[in-house]
Design a protein around this nucleic acid. Structure first.
Lengths: 184, 184
DNA sequence: CTACAAATGCAACAATCTTTGCTTTAGACT
DNA sequence: AGTCTAAAGCAAAGATTGTTGCATTTGTAG
């Protein structure tokens, strides 16, 4: 969405710096994993002075979180295909697809390290989206938003973090099928 | 279970160093979060020379992974209460209880940051344990090991990492109930 | 297009982390 | 006990990271 650090000059050179830093972080996190990336590394890769990075973000975690949410929240529209099951299937497919990109997966893992204290943007949005889809189909919906989180989002994210090679083209559909098995 | 770095002298002073380092890491990770812990910090808290830590583990991530799996695998026996559902309930309760301890949760998050390339000990053991419990009750078991991972383990771990405040005394039971709802 | 000020760049400094060669301590085996 | 040597401790050097004051560039408002 937008940068945490509010810039009074969002355009021109500042924007260029932001972009090259963003690319550099994504590349490096994917190459080496969150733990082996440092600010001087990022700055060098980005062709930017480390001072600029320090002054904008202060530390690496802040920067990574900023850049991760940036990527994760592309104002994507919520599916609206006519039935809850098809909406959830579409939605889950998009999430799986997003995280099958190794860069996105690496950023998620990096964010996990500092999660848990405050509800991250990424998590909050998921819950909100699930709620919107479920509520669209009235109160007698066969599944609750919490069930969507526990049985659809959680398995996907768990696999992204710990078992990424188990994600394939059918994962989303299988999970939705299981979620609906025996009800609605 | 045991230290990655094979020690030809596991006892005496080496064991004492390992123990105090272990305690120091746990305390510091809980106090400051994985991101703000360094090897010199750990060494000082442990009353040990930093060199010893560097020589044993090489870097912080290796050390944390080592110590985390150490904690996670206390050769705990697998529940055997007479029915698959009660076994899984007991097992899930133990996992929830384990991770409601903030130190264990912090170590999990720290490990997540470097997961995904190789199947971590912690993950492998979970899958193996699930398999053992399911297989004990024959082939017509109502749930598969994969379902246990997706619908029981994944929601717990997801909550531990991103929504720790949602873990309570009933979480394990509710998840198992849902897993069995509409089948066996 | 001018002037103001925000953001970057630079350079020197400070602090911290990591490595290395050597010495000392103390497990483990006989 | 005595010997051997793995592992820990120590200290100094080296590398990397983080900070700060000041000069330079360049968005942006008027």
């Amino acid at each position: 969405m937008s940068t945490n650090t509010v810039q009074k000059r969002p355009g021109g050179r500042s924007a260029a710096v932001l972009n090259s830093v963003k690319v550099a972080v994504e590349e490096l996190v994917q190459e080496k994993g969150r733990e082996r990336v440092t600010i001087p590394m990022v700055a060098e890769r980005a062709g930017v002075n480390p001072t600029s990075v320090y002054r904008r973000w202060g530390d690496l975690q802040t920067m990574i979180n900023d850049i991760a949410t940036y990527r994760l929240d592309p104002a994507r529209p919520i599916p609206q295909l006519g039935s809850l099951k098809s909406d959830l299937t579409q939605w889950a497919r998009e999430i799986v697809e997003h995280y099958r990109n190794p860069t996105n997966a690496a950023l998620l893992r990096g964010g996990a390290a500092s999660a848990g204290e405050t509800e991250s943007d990424c998590t909050r949005n998921r819950r909100a989206e699930a709620g919107m889809m479920v509520e669209r189909y009235g109160d007698e919906s066969p599944v609750t938003p919490d069930e969507v989180l526990d049985q659809l989002v959680a398995p996907i994210i768990y696999r992204v973090i710990f078992l990424p090679w188990t994600l394939d083209d059918h994962t989303a559909d299988e999970l939705v099928d299981r979620l609906f098995a025996g009800r609605g």
